[in-house]
Every structure is written in structure tokens, then in C-alpha cells.
Nucleic acid binder design. Structure first.
Lengths: 192, 192
DNA sequence: CCTTTTCTGAAACAAACGTTTCAGAATAAT
DNA sequence: ATTATTCTGAAACGTTTGTTTCAGAAAAGG
């Protein structure tokens, strides 16, 4: 008996995510957001909610995309170690070619200490990332592709936390070679 | 022929730094800042300048403190490797016991992409950190304390970027053991 | 002590903030 | 076609933002 929502909510979230990604939570104003989403603030408040709720949805969306990527990679027909190397390679390219650093990392430092819902989403994301790495590392050890004298759980944690510093390094130095050399060193250490 | 500034500027910068450190640049309001500094905004604008200028001064102050710490450590009478291990140990304790993560890291992700002056200060800080590590690693190699088959420049870069991820990990998981195990693994890899 | 310069406190500033209101347009079901 | 319900756009809401103003208090130098 009534009208339907006019705008594409998924698309609007995507656009809002890009704004938050670039400007951060506090740096993005509601005008910035509604301009990008191409909707009126009344529509936003009627459907999604306030700024915090919108941010939560955007972070969720961001981590959903990563989840899909990991699931796809786990189905790869390459060997576990080759899949790991591919993943590392792609991640380095994202750091080097991306316009902004990882939204999950930025959000962890800016808002995860204050907003428990955001923190929870990021924790879940981090655990999936860990699981992905742990899976591949364990399999690679079983197949003798990487040395098996280390704890895969430790290696997964270590791997998982290594990226973040590379993002920071690239923000400061914009030096692709630096990142590539660190990645190569990391891979070399895993295998030997 | 006239009055002197009434407040202690160094102390005021220290207080402002603590606010920025905790809330970030965009999250800290001028009221938050002047409340902590215990000065009127007119005094702030007469002496230091606007919010951006104040932030620059705070980041500068933060990195000055780090510089002093590195200089002190370089004068240590312990061996280079022992100094490195001490440094790592202290850094882990700061991550675990500190109320907030590193202000340099937070600022890199929040403002270094927009504010060139802040970026410049952080780059200089990063280079000093690199130099500190490179010094110790080179000396430790010369003395046979760590294996000398790696490039000290690469190791210093790698070392330098490793911390950041540990801060993120601790924000999300608040797990001291996780951090300590990663630190132990790192040290073990250097020496063997 | 008096003058001159400077600093301080409180108030005010316009602009921007996140959010709400509401009349009217839109549309699904009757 | 009418009705009932919902969505949209523009405007306005009260706060808070960063910044400025200015009268008066403070004090160094003559």
C-alpha cells in the first residue's frame, strides 16, 4: 500500500564506504556522505540510521568483500604455498597502487577503541584473515612446501600483523621497492 | 615594557599532545584541548596558532621524545644485540601497558596523507628510527651477535615496520601473549 | 608611579555539524 | 480511481565547531 525506497541501498553503502575510507570517521561529514550517496539525509535516517550506524554498515561491507576474496583464494587449484605467494603479491600491489591504505587498519586505529560494534566487526575480520593464513600455512607444511619446525598459529599471527606496517611505510615513503623487498624477505624466510 | 606569557608553553603542548594522542586530530575539539591545556583560546591563538599548528607542535614534541630515547639507548654499554633486545622488550611493554597506541602511527594513518607538514615530521622520525636500528644491527653483525648473511638496511626497514601491526593486533585482541610470542619469534630469527 | 605594551578571560562570531521536521510527491493495494 | 501508506526534498533545528574580538587585568621599563 505504499511507495518503495527509491535508491539502491547497496550502491549507497558502497559510495559512503569510499568517503569514510578516504576521510576517516571523524573526517567525513554527513554532507560529504549524502553527496556521494546521492540521497537526502532524511532518506538516510529513514532507512539506515545515523552516522554511526552508517559507518558500521560500511565497515561491515568492507570486511564482507575481504571475506569473499579469501573464500575464492581457498578454492584455488594452485598449491598452498603458491596461493600464499600470490596473496602476498596481490596485497603488495594493493598497497602500492591503492589510493588509500586499508580501511580496516585505519578504522582500527581511529575508532575501534571507542566503538565496540566496529571493534567487533574488525575482530571478526581479523580472525577470518588469521584462519585463511593458518589454513594455507598448515597445508603448505603438510606438503613440505615450507619448513615445518614452526608453529603455524604463530606464523599466521605474525603474517597477519605484518601488512599493517607496510601500509604505514608506504604512506610515509611512497617507495614501492621498499615494500617489495620486505615481502620478498618474508617469503624467503617462510620457505627456508 | 609589558606582560609576559603566563602559562608554561611546554607543559601546555604536553597536555594538548595527550588529548590528540587519545582522540586523534579530528576527534579532538578545541574545547577539549584548551580545557586540558588550562588556557583560554585567545592565549592559544596569540602564542601557538590555530589547531593545525598546535597539532604540528604536538607531533613534533612526540617525536622529540622518541629521539631522546634512541640517543640514550645508543650510549648503552651493553652489546648491540642486547641493546636491540632491550629495546624490543621495552616496546612490547609499551604496547601492552600503554593506554593508547603510538601517536606517530595513528597520525600517519589519520593525517599524514592530507597534511604535508605532519607527514614530513613523521618521515624524519621514521628515518631516525631506521638509523637507530641500522646502527645496532650493523654493529651486532660486526661482532658476530647476529647472522651477517642479510642486508642490514633490509632488516632495519623490516624491523621498523613490524611494530605497527602489533599495535593494531593489541587494539583488537588485547592479548599480551600474542605480542610477546611474535616479539620472541622476531628476535630468534635475527640471531639464528 | 606612571606609561606602554602585552596577555588574559569571557563573550561572541559565522560556519558547519549531525539530526529532525513536515508538506507534498509517489505508489502499492483496494 | 481512490485510499492508505511511505518516501523524498528542502528547510530548519539546536549544538558544536574553529576562530576572533575586545575590554580590562597585568607587569616590565622609564
Amino acid at each position: 500500500m505504499a511507495r518503495n525506497v527509491e535508491f539502491d541501498e547497496a550502491l549507497a553503502i558502497q559510495k559512503a564506504m569510499e568517503v569514510f575510507w578516504k576521510k576517516g570517521y571523524n573526517g567525513a561529514s554527513l554532507r560529504d556522505l549524502t553527496d556521494a550517496m546521492q540521497i537526502n539525509s532524511s532518506s538516510l535516517y529513514n532507512t539506515i540510521g545515523d552516522k554511526q550506524e552508517l559507518f558500521v554498515r560500511c565497515v561491515q561491507h568492507y570486511t564482507d568483500l575481504r571475506k569473499l576474496d579469501w573464500e575464492k583464494r581457498l578454492k584455488s587449484k594452485k598449491s598452498p604455498f603458491a596461493t600464499l605467494v600470490d596473496y602476498m603479491h596481490d596485497a603488495v600491489n594493493i598497497i602500492i597502487n591503492g589510493e588509500d591504505s586499508c580501511m580496516a587498519v585505519k578504522s582500527a586505529f581511529e575508532v575501534a577503541t571507542n566503538d565496540q560494534r566496529v571493534k567487533q566487526i574488525l575482530v571478526a575480520d581479523d580472525q577470518r584473515s588469521y584462519q585463511f593464513l593458518h589454513d594455507l600455512i598448515s597445508k603448505a607444511m603438510d606438503q613440505g612446501e615450507i619448513r615445518a619446525d614452526e608453529d603455524p598459529a604463530l606464523l599466521a599471527d605474525y603474517f597477519n600483523s605484518t601488512w599493517t606496517g607496510w601500509y604505514e611505510s608506504y604512506i610515509l615513503h611512497k617507495d614501492p621497492v621498499k615494500i617489495k623487498r620486505m615481502a620478498a624477505y618474508f617469503i624467503k624466510q617462510l620457505s627456508k
